[in-house]
């Protein structure tokens, strides 16, 4: 499946993702930032497809580009008097240095490590990822799977309790 189209797609999608991510940092409006974030998420989902992880790509679109982004929009809309200008803190220059150094370090390590790669990287090792992930979740990873479900329930209850009206009265 290593066709030139895939390679082109990879580079285009990588560029799209990184550019949108940069735009998240650049744009002046927080709502716009969320929109660019969604674009970046979709780019990542596309990258997953080129890496033959179709199931994860779908999940990525559903959860990140769908649910989480909507949550963020809600959070922004529910905090109307807060700043909407996507401004930076006063010391963003040293932080950009730190971030750059981190990126450089990771790139250096990534390029200089002897990865135990598969012999023939031209072909994907997966036939049908959804079925394989399903089997993996229910056989070797059944315990983490159950724990994850408990975590989700707890997070849901926690979020409800946190934003429930009535906390207001307690606070005031």
């Amino acid at each position: 499946m290593e066709q030139p189209a895939v390679i082109v797609a990879f580079y285009v999608l990588a560029g799209l993702t990184l550019l949108s991510a940069l735009m998240v940092a650049m744009v002046r409006d927080l709502i716009h930032a969320v929109l660019f974030l969604i674009l970046s998420f979709i780019g990542v989902a596309g990258l997953y497809v080129t890496l033959s992880a179709d199931f994860v790509a779908v999940v990525q679109v559903l959860i990140y580009a769908g649910a989480i982004s909507v949550l963020m929009l809600f959070a922004i809309l529910l905090t109307p008097r807060s700043s909407r200008d996507n401004s930076s803190v006063s010391y963003s220059a040293p932080i950009s240095v730190v971030a750059g150094l981190i990126g450089a370090t990771i790139v250096y390590v990534a390029l200089n490590t002897e990865w135990a790669k598969t012999a023939d990287s031209s072909d994907s090792p997966f036939e049908n990822t959804a079925a394989e992930i399903g089997k993996a979740l229910l056989d070797p990873y059944v315990l983490p799977f159950e724990v994850a479900s408990v975590l989700l329930v707890i997070a849901m209850i926690g979020a409800i309790i946190l934003v429930r009206p009535g906390n207001e009265e307690d606070a005031s």
Binding site: V98, A99, L101, T105, V109
Partner: peptide, 15 residues
Amino acid sequence: ALAFSSLVFTTVLVL
């Protein structure tokens, strides 16, 4: 920022 700076520092040191 401090935590990540020290991460960079240690990683570079190890490298």
